[in-house]
Simulated assay, not measured.
Amino acid sequence: MRAGTGSRRRCRAAARRGLLRDSRRHQGRSGCPYGSRVVHRPGRRTFHILLGEQALYTHLGGPEVMRHQLRRLQDATYLPGLSLGIIPACARLLFHPGGGFSIFDDSRVEVEGYRGAETIADQGRAGVFRKAFGLLQPSGVYAQAARDLITSALAVS
């Protein structure tokens, strides 16, 4: 999350890449992963993350890496600055999730794609993504229901 950003909403349909970075190259001076450092500061910033259930089964880096990422994701569901929603594969969707995007402070959107990221600052265009997130959010499950989906993915990874 960029410095000065107070809230972030993120939607990813099929991959977890970069959600709560934990590799050594992303560690800050304190040794704590960047994503964890930011989320562990209660009252400072808020993350609202939506993942499609498929993201829990998308293997990037092999089984050991997958299990580690799923355990980290499960632990993250207890963080006070994070609302993690998982959209079950059988959920009724009011809107197609499309590609991944992040909304910063309701004013700037970063859309991820194969050609790179596009930054959108135009409020009319950003409004489309705010609306999309709002329509997708109720399809997600949270807290224990999200942990149960992660546990199911761990059982087969």
Rank of each mutant, 00 (worst) to 15 (best):
Q74N: 13
L70H: 08
A76R: 01
H96W: 12
S107W: 10
S107G: 10
C90V: 12
G81F: 02
F104S: 05
I86T: 09
L56K: 05
P88K: 06
D75K: 07
G98M: 00
L93K: 05
I87R: 03
R67P: 02
G62S: 01
L93A: 07
P80M: 08
P97N: 02
L82E: 03
H48I: 06
G52E: 05
L60N: 10
L84E: 03
T46M: 12
D105R: 00
I49D: 05
A89S: 13
Y57E: 02
A89P: 03
V109H: 06
I87F: 00
D106T: 04
I86E: 04
L56Q: 05
L79Q: 11
G100A: 11
L73E: 11
G81H: 06
G61V: 12
R108W: 10
F47N: 13
L60R: 11
I49W: 11
L51S: 02
I49L: 09
L50K: 04
S83F: 07
L70K: 05
H68Y: 15
G99M: 09
G52D: 03
H48Q: 15
E53M: 07
G98D: 04
Q54P: 08
T46H: 15
P63A: 15
V65L: 14
S107R: 14
L82F: 00
L73I: 05
A89N: 13
M66T: 12
L94P: 06
L82T: 04
H48C: 08
I103L: 13
H59P: 06
L70W: 06
T77P: 07
A91S: 13
L82Y: 01
L60T: 08
T46E: 14
D105V: 00
H68I: 06
R92Q: 12
P88A: 01
L56I: 06
V65Y: 03
L84G: 04
L79D: 10
E53W: 10
H68T: 15
P88I: 08
R71E: 14
P80G: 07
D75T: 09
I86A: 02
E64S: 11
V109T: 03
P80T: 13
L79T: 07
L70E: 00
I86L: 09
S102N: 11
G98E: 00
A91V: 08
F95N: 08
I49V: 15
A76S: 04
R67Y: 08
G81C: 09
L51A: 10
G85W: 06
G85K: 04
I49M: 03
H59S: 09
D106V: 08
A91K: 04
Y78S: 11
S83D: 07
G99W: 07
G85I: 02
H68D: 15
A89D: 14
L70R: 02
R108A: 13
Y78I: 06
L94A: 12
G99P: 06
Y57A: 10
D106I: 02
E64H: 03
D106H: 11
R71T: 15
I87V: 04
G100M: 05
L94Q: 07
V109N: 04
I103V: 04
L50I: 01
A89W: 07
L82K: 00
L94C: 11
L56T: 09
I87E: 01
G99R: 15
Q74H: 12
